[in-house]
Design a protein around this nucleic acid. Structure first.
Lengths: 93, 93
DNA sequence: CTGCATTTGTGCGTATGTATG
DNA sequence: ACATACATACGCACAAATGCA
């Protein structure tokens, strides 16, 4: 896929641009519930940003309840049923 | 006030220790509503930590609604009246 | 169980931009 | 213009959790 990029001249900071980009992927269904998002490392390569920037983007999506993160594994798209109550969800894959 | 310090050997990360420390100050009334908290720079010197660490501690208190931050000014203890009517500038979708 | 690779968590140092006074 | 302070960003390092051979 084409390397996504951020506009450093835009008023929106890169980390928000990335968050909006990923959020759009989820909305669009490009990233379905239960599926993993790109790792922080991949995001840095994909968008050409620092890890801090990638982490901020993920933190934003986490705050919105769009994703959840597991240490040592990665971030996953929250399933609609989980958005109203934190916990683990093991719907089939 | 005595130079607070963090225990890098403790399971609780420094930024949480600092946040708990400051939260205790607020609870205790040592830091009254409307009063400013130590600046990030002061926190780094007071606890001997990096700026990011100090910022994380403040971010934690901010999330809990215990304090609010004003760009170019500093962080202040939230007044009880404000805690029930929070309205941060986070207009985003 | 042990070792390794991957991924996230945390910490430190620094630089630039913006806002306030 | 200057000092102070926060926001964002980059680089680096090590620790902890996870998964797998």
């Amino acid at each position: 896929m084409a390397a996504r990029e951020v506009d450093h001249r835009a008023p929106e900071p890169p980390y928000r641009q990335i968050a909006a980009d990923l959020a759009a992927d989820i909305e669009r269904g490009d990233l379905a519930p239960g599926r993993p998002l790109p790792s922080e490392k991949e995001l840095t390569e994909l968008y050409g940003v620092a890890r801090e920037t990638a982490r901020r983007a993920l933190a934003l999506l986490r705050e919105r309840g769009l994703i959840y993160t597991v240490t040592g594994r990665g971030s996953y798209v929250t399933e609609p049923a989980e958005q109203t109550g934190e916990g683990d969800g093991r719907a089939d894959a």
